[in-house]
Amino acid sequence: MRKESFLWFALGSSFIVLLFITVPLLRMVSAPTLSSLWETIRDPEVYRSIWLSLYTGISAALICFVFGTPLAYLLARSEFHGKKIVEAIVDLPIVIPHPVVGIALLGLVGKNFWLGRVMQELGVRIVGSPAGIIMVMTFVGLPFYLQAAKEGFASVSPRLEHVSRSLGASMFATFVGVTFPLAWRSILSGIIMCCARAISEFGAIVIIAYHPMIAPVLMFERFQSFGLRYSQPVAVWLIVVCLLLFLSLRLVGGGAQKVRSGRRAGSRV
C-alpha cells in the first residue's frame, strides 16, 4: 500500500525539527570533558552565579504566583469590557525585545526618575543587585505563568464552584477548597515555565545588573574573554541544575494528584 506523500513530508520535516533542537544541545553537553566540568563547578564564581540564577528565578516565579494568580483567575472566569486589552497588556513582555525591557525598567528605577531616586534615598538598591534581577525576571516570566494558570482555572467547571457556593462556602473558601486544588497542575506548570523563562533571561538583565553575575551573564563573559571552551561547562551545569529542579518540582507537586483522579479535573459540562 502506497503511503500518502504528504505523510512522508510530515514525517521528514518532524524529524528535521527534532534534530534541530537536540543536536546542538547534545553537542554542547558532550563537548566538555568530565575533568573540565569538575573543575568548573569548584570555581566559586561559577557556583555562585548558578545559585544566584536559581534563587532569583525561583523568587520571580513565586512573586508571579502570589500576585498573578488572582489576575489569572479573573481572566479565566469573568467577561468585562476591555478584557482583550488586559490580555494584550499581559502578553506584552513576550513580544518586546529583551534589551528594551531592560531599558524600560532602568528608566523607572534608575537615577533619572523620581522612583529610582526615592528608592535610593530609602537605601533600596535595584540596579546592580539581586532585587533588580528578580524584578526583570518577574517582568519577563509573568505572561508564562498567567497563561498557564488561566488555562488551569478555565478547565475547572464553574458548576463545581456553583455547587460549592450553594453548600455554604464563600467565594474565597470555594477558591481554596475547589478551584485551586483542581487547577494546581496547571499552576505548577506555570510556575515551572515562568521559572525557566526567568533563568534563561539575559538581554534585559545585563542592562539592569551586569553584576552580580547570573549564570547566563557569566557564560557570556567567559565566552568573550576566553572563548567557547570556557563557557560550555558553565552552560552544562546550568542545564543540569535546572532540569533537576523542574523534575523534582513535578514529582513533588504532581504526584499526589495523579493518585486521586485518572482524568482531567472536573471539566465536564
Binding site: S157, L160, H162, V163, S164, L182, Q257, R260, S261
Partner: peptide, 12 residues
C-alpha cells in the same frame, strides 16, 4: 442546594 444533571462532584 442545587444538584446538576452532570452531578458536578468534586473530582479531587
Amino acid at each position: 442546594s442545587i444538584v446538576y444533571q452532570d452531578y458536578a462532584l468534586f473530582p479531587h
